[in-house]
């Protein structure tokens, strides 16, 4: 798990310790550049190992034609709401899931039994590890979950 551990250390070193970064525009609802805590990354990494690693692989490289890579994946780097919806609904396999991707054969199960905080920490870890993007907050997960209900 060297790759996973290196990501955590690097993420913590930068995101909690860089105070002289240029100011970013204010977000409309939740602050996307809120600090990532050590606890969030640790839990997110553990959840990735438990729920995601077998399919998306230890380095987020996915499996050709079966499961998409998380590295260089526009969905990972893109709008948090879509990413949250993918986790809550899954992709393919059931009527409630998002449509399957034509390029990848495998379906992805819904993980709506995870709490808002767990999903937020998982996606924060994934975005930091594979897209160098900012955190996702539990409030954002709760908002998407509420919209889907």
């Amino acid at each position: 798990m060297r790759f996973l551990l290196c990501i955590s250390v690097a993420a913590l070193a930068c995101l909690t310790g860089c105070s002289d970064e240029p100011e970013k525009p204010e977000a409309a609802t939740v602050l996307p550049d809120a600090p990532i805590t050590a606890e969030a990354l640790t839990q997110g990494q553990a959840l990735y190992v438990k729920a995601c690693l077998q399919c998306h692989q230890y380095d987020g490289s996915g499996v050709p034609a079966m499961q998409p890579a998380l590295i260089d994946n526009p969905a990972v780097a893109g709008e948090p709401e879509h990413l949250i919806e993918v986790v809550l609904r899954g992709m393919g396999g059931t009527d409630s899931a998002l449509p399957p991707s034509g390029e990848y054969a495998m379906t992805m199960p819904a993980s709506d039994s995870m709490t808002d905080t767990e999903i937020a920490n998982l996606l924060t870890y994934i975005r930091q590890a594979y897209a160098d993007e900012g955190p996702i907050k539990p409030e954002q997960v709760a908002a998407v979950r509420s919209k889907l209900e």
């Binding site: 692989q57 230890y58 380095d59 490289s61 996915g62 499996v63 050709p64 890579a69």
Partner: peptide, 11 residues
């Protein structure tokens, strides 16, 4: 595969 140890299929 081109290498002895493969951790991920893309390797």
């Amino acid at each position: 595969a081109g290498k002895e140890e493969i951790r991920s299929p893309r390797e």
